[in-house]
Nucleic acid binder design. Structure first.
Lengths: 187, 187
DNA sequence: CGCGTAATTGAAAAGTATCAACACTGGTGG
DNA sequence: CCACCAGTGTTGATACTTTTCAATTACGCG
């Protein structure tokens, strides 16, 4: 649900303090502000320092599907920098958010020369694949009520922190269905 | 749908011919035979040389969800070797299949010492994340007929090569629904 | 206060699953 | 050679789930 990666964030802060002051810059985004746009070329890696953002795809029919919510330490842009393709999702702050930016060249240099960073990135990618596979499998093979209960169990503050619309887009359902199930459950 | 990775397969064959004869072994699997079992510890990386396999998760309620179909050059076991977790899916041959096995230690050594292999693996992970995200987003935000049409467009031989049951499990629907939509479309 | 956005709800329509019956196919053994 | 069997595929009827649409209410903020 809300992914974090404190280990990577710590490592990045250490890098910034030891010779990478210039190549690691810090930025902020207000609510609703996009830090990365779908279908554009990406020239940097980004890491969230603090805040909360949604990572979503806008489909050909205009629907949005939220891939994940990103908290501290979550990375975006890495897929695009590795494959060289244009971005396939948008990253948008849902609370005021600060994040680091690392230019493409510095990212590739780190990957090549810094074994620790290389390992952190491999682990990050592998963990994300695993997490997404489990989530999508669960949602495809269970009904709404079960998927929602699983979500609330994993992330109890769900309804306080994230709008109904975003929750619905995360589950791939209409807000009407979400409301119906929420009401059923509360009975 | 059916993923392949000829670049990685070629590189692996070259490795095997140049000093890795002993650590890269070749095996075969008949139809229905499992090459990797869900919820077990993994001690090797596997790469399909020739054939076709399904990668699927069995959920707590007994349902199967097919993550992907793997053709030549596709890799499995890499997520588990990187994260150290037990496997989250099963890999099962759906036609007679041959595959390479690379022990954990050799895999990690390659990752560390062979920059080309390291890059190939990063690209593989990034490509898989991207592909899965696009597929799941599409399926979540479109109806069955649209998802099926997209699938047939991407992979026209679909119905000849893969059983209805597997197609249904790939789309996360019942075979009854698949048949209904197929009949509607053919009208 | 007034505005825009988010949330809620009902009714009807559309989509999908479940269940059950039956057809087709490729083995296997008598 | 044929009867049988298990697995896969097909189809109809029905029940259930989810969406769509539209109307209303609640809420945060300038």
């Amino acid at each position: 649900m809300i992914r974090v990666n404190q280990e990577l964030l710590n490592y990045l802060i250490r890098l910034k303090d030891s010779g990478y002051q210039d190549s690691i810059t810090e930025h902020t985004a207000g609510i609703g502000e996009k830090m990365l746009h779908q279908r554009t070329y990406i020239h940097s890696l980004y890491v969230i320092k603090e805040g909360l953002a949604k990572c979503f795809l806008t489909l050909d029919n205009g629907n949005d599907f939220i891939q994940e919510f990103f908290g501290a330490g979550e990375v975006f842009g890495e897929i695009e920098l590795i494959t060289g393709d244009i971005s396939f999702c948008t990253i948008e702050a849902i609370i005021p958010t600060t994040y680091y930016q690392i230019p493409k060249a510095a990212f590739h240099q780190l990957l090549k020369d810094d074994a620790v960073f290389n390992t952190l990135l491999l682990r990050l990618l592998a963990t994300n694949i695993r997490y997404a596979a489990l989530r999508h499998s669960y949602n495809q093979t269970h009904n709404l009520e079960e998927s929602l209960n699983r979500l609330k169990k994993e992330f109890p503050e769900l309804l306080q922190k994230i709008s109904k619309k975003d929750i619905a887009n995360y589950l791939g359902i209409s807000t009407r269905s979400l409301n119906r199930v929420l009401k059923e459950v509360s009975k």
